[in-house]
Design a protein around this nucleic acid. Sequence first.
DNA 1: TCAAAAGTGTTATCCTTACACCCATGC
DNA 2: GCATGGGTGTAAGGATAACACTTTTGA
Lengths: 297, 297
Amino acid sequence: MMNNETSASEQQFLKTYNPEQYKRPSVTVDMLLFTVARGEQKNYRKLPDMELKLLLVKRGKHPFKNQWALPGGFVQVDESLEEAAYRELKEETNVEEVYLEQLYTWGAVERDPRTRIISVSYLALVDHTKLTVKSGDDAAEAEWFTATLKIQEEEKKMTEEGFVQRETFLLTLRNDETTLTADVIVHRTKIGKVETTKTDISLSKGIAFDHAKIIVYALERLRNKVSYTDVIFTLMPDTFTLTELQKVYETILDKKLIKANFRRKISHMVLETNEFTTEAGHRPSQLFTFKNDWSDD
Amino acid sequence: MMNNETSASEQQFLKTYNPEQYKRPSVTVDMLLFTVARGEQKNYRKLPDMELKLLLVKRGKHPFKNQWALPGGFVQVDESLEEAAYRELKEETNVEEVYLEQLYTWGAVERDPRTRIISVSYLALVDHTKLTVKSGDDAAEAEWFTATLKIQEEEKKMTEEGFVQRETFLLTLRNDETTLTADVIVHRTKIGKVETTKTDISLSKGIAFDHAKIIVYALERLRNKVSYTDVIFTLMPDTFTLTELQKVYETILDKKLIKANFRRKISHMVLETNEFTTEAGHRPSQLFTFKNDWSDD
DNA sequence: TCAAAAGTGTTATCCTTACACCCATGC
DNA sequence: GCATGGGTGTAAGGATAACACTTTTGA
C-alpha cells in the first residue's frame, strides 16, 4: 500500500493536488442476489416449500473478519453504477438472465469503521435453474443462505401531530453449516409533515457492517413489488405449476393464500402448456409459463 | 485552487497517498423541491388551478452557464446523505416542515462534463404557506418554475421474448420570465428476464446537465406515490377545501377526476372543520384538515 | 338571473374474500 | 383406502366508475 517512489503521473497528480477535495466519500455497489429453490421434501406425497435464497460472501479480513457480507465493490471512475453492478454479478456467478433494480443508497457516516463509504444497493433476481455460483477463482467464498423475515412485534402510537411506530423484525439467514441472525428495529416517526425512518440493528450474529438493514430493506421491497408487478416470474423456471408459483408468493409475502383466489388473480399472467407433472404421489398438475403480454389484455 | 505550500496534515496525507485510490467518483446530493400554489384567477367566479412548482437555481459558471439546474452540492465526509440533503434545503429556503425522500442515484459516466459525479437525488415536498426562498446571500439565484409533464407519444411492441416500449414526454418549466423545456424519451425494453430502462433527453432548452431526466423521474414517482399514499397532504396548507385538494391531485396526475367519486375516496383521510370559505362568487365550501390517524379506522 | 362551484344519491360492474366441493394419483 | 394436492364454483361485501341531480352564492 505504502509507496515511496513517485511516478510521472503521480507527479502530475501532485501538482494539481488539493487536500480538501479528497475529503470525500467513496462509493461501492452492494448486490442483493436472490433466487428461489425447493426445500426438503418431508415425505413422498408432500410438496417441498419454496425457499428464498440470498448470496453472501465470507469476509477474509478485518473488519468483520469471518462474518458474512453482501457481495460488492468500489465503483470505478470509468464505469456507470449499472456497469459496476453487472460486474459484481459476473464476478460471483454466471448469470446471463437477471432482473436488476436499484434499491437504495446508504450514506450514514459510520457505516464502515475504516473510511467513509456510500453504498448503492441493487436488487437482483434470478431463476436458480439458470445459475451456478463461481467458486475458487475469487479469494472470497460465496454461499447461498435461506432468508426468512418475521415480524416479532409491532407498535404504533398516535401523537398530537403524527405517530411513532416501532416494528421489530427477526432476520434469519440459514445454511447447512451456518445460521446468521439479526434483530432489526424499524422506527417510523411522523411529526407534522416530517416523516423519519430509522433502522437499528439491535443484535447481529455473523452479518457484517450494516448489511442486515440492507437485507431487511430488500426483503420489504421485494414484498411490495411482488404484489403489484410481475417480478416474481424472474424467480421462476421456464415452466412451473401454479402451486409452486403460489408457494413462492407465500414465502416472499410470509402469508398463506387461498388457492382458488390466487389462481383467479394470476390467471391472466400465465399460459397453459400441455405438460403435466407425474409421479408426484397425487393428481398430476398442469405446467404453466409466464405470459409475456399479459399487461395488454 | 493550486497550492504550492505543503501543510503538516498534507505531509501526513502524502505519506499514505496512493494515486489509484483517488480515481473515484465524487458524490453530490441533488434536491427536487416541490410546492403547490394557486395559478391565476380567470374571473371572479372561476377557481384558480393549482400549479406544481419546482425550485431551480441559475448556474453562474461553466458548464451550462446561465442554464437552470437542481439545487445541490457535494456530500462531505462527515455528514450523512440525509444531512447533506437537509443542508441543501436550508441553504435555499427556510423550510422547517418538509417531507423528504430519497429518489434515485444517478451514475452514468458522462453526466458531468468535468469529472465523474454520482448524484443521489432527493424529493422534497413542502406546503407553500410555510415557505420562503432565501435570496441574495448565496451567489446563485433560485426561482420557482411551474412544472408540467405531458405524454406526447406512447408506443409498445411485443416481441418474442418481451417488449420494446417508447414513451415521449414533454417537460415544461415555466416562469414569469423564463420557459424551459425538454423532450425526454423513456425506452423500456424487456428481453426474457432482463428489463432495461434508458432515458434520453432529445432536446433540452435551458435545463443543465441531465437534470431534465431527473425531474421527469421525480414527477413520475410523485404521480405514483400520490395514488397509494397520503404524501399529497404534505403539499397542502393546514386547511383546504376538497376542490382544492382535488385540483392538486389533478395537476399531479394530469387527469380529470369525478367529484363525487373523489370525495368518497379521500373522505376517510380528511376531517371537517367548522369553517367555510366566503365571498367566492358561489356557494361557500367547507374547509377540511388532514386526518392524521386515517390509516387505522 | 345565472354561472360556477358545493354537495349528495343511484346504479352497474368488477374485484376480493372466504368457503365448499369434487377429482386424480400412488403407495 | 386415503393422504395430498389439483382444480372449480358460489355468494357476500366492498370498491370503483359514470352520471344525474339539488343547493348556494355574489355580481
